[in-house]
Amino acid sequence: MVTTEFHIFLWHVGSHSWVRRSNLDSLIHRVVVFKGQVFGMHSIDGLFKVHLVPRIRLQNISVDLGKSMGRLKDAKMWLVACGDMLLMVGCPSSVPSIGDTLEAFRLDLSVQRAKWVKVEKLENWAIFISIDGRSQALCCMDPEKWGGRSNCIYYYDSKEWIACELGKPLKVGASTPRFECAHMMQPMWVVPSMFYSFL
Rank of each mutant, 00 (worst) to 15 (best):
W78V: 01
A126F: 01
G66W: 13
R20Y: 02
M194G: 04
P192L: 14
H51Q: 13
P177N: 03
L122Q: 00
G148M: 05
I129H: 04
T4P: 05
L72D: 14
L27Q: 11
C181T: 13
I162A: 04
P187G: 04
Y156T: 08
S68C: 02
C82N: 12
Y154C: 00
K35T: 01
Y155C: 02
V50C: 04
S62P: 03
D132E: 15
R55M: 12
L87M: 07
Y154V: 03
C181M: 14
E165I: 09
R71T: 10
S175G: 12
L109I: 15
K171Y: 13
M41Y: 01
L107T: 05
T3D: 01
H29K: 10
F6Q: 13
L65C: 13
V38A: 01
D142I: 09
E120V: 09
V38Q: 05
F39S: 00
L109Q: 14
L65F: 10
G148L: 07
I127R: 04
M41S: 12
F39V: 02
M85N: 11
I127V: 15
C91G: 03
Y196G: 04
D64Q: 12
S62E: 08
L166P: 02
S62I: 07
G36S: 15
C164A: 15
D25L: 08
G147E: 09
I61M: 10
G147V: 03
G133S: 12
A163S: 08
R20A: 10
D132R: 15
F6G: 12
H7E: 14
Q112Y: 11
R134P: 03
W78L: 06
R149G: 07
S22H: 15
V89D: 06
D157V: 06
F128K: 00
R149F: 04
F48G: 02
G70W: 07
E180H: 14
V53Q: 12
F195N: 10
L199Y: 07
W189Q: 06
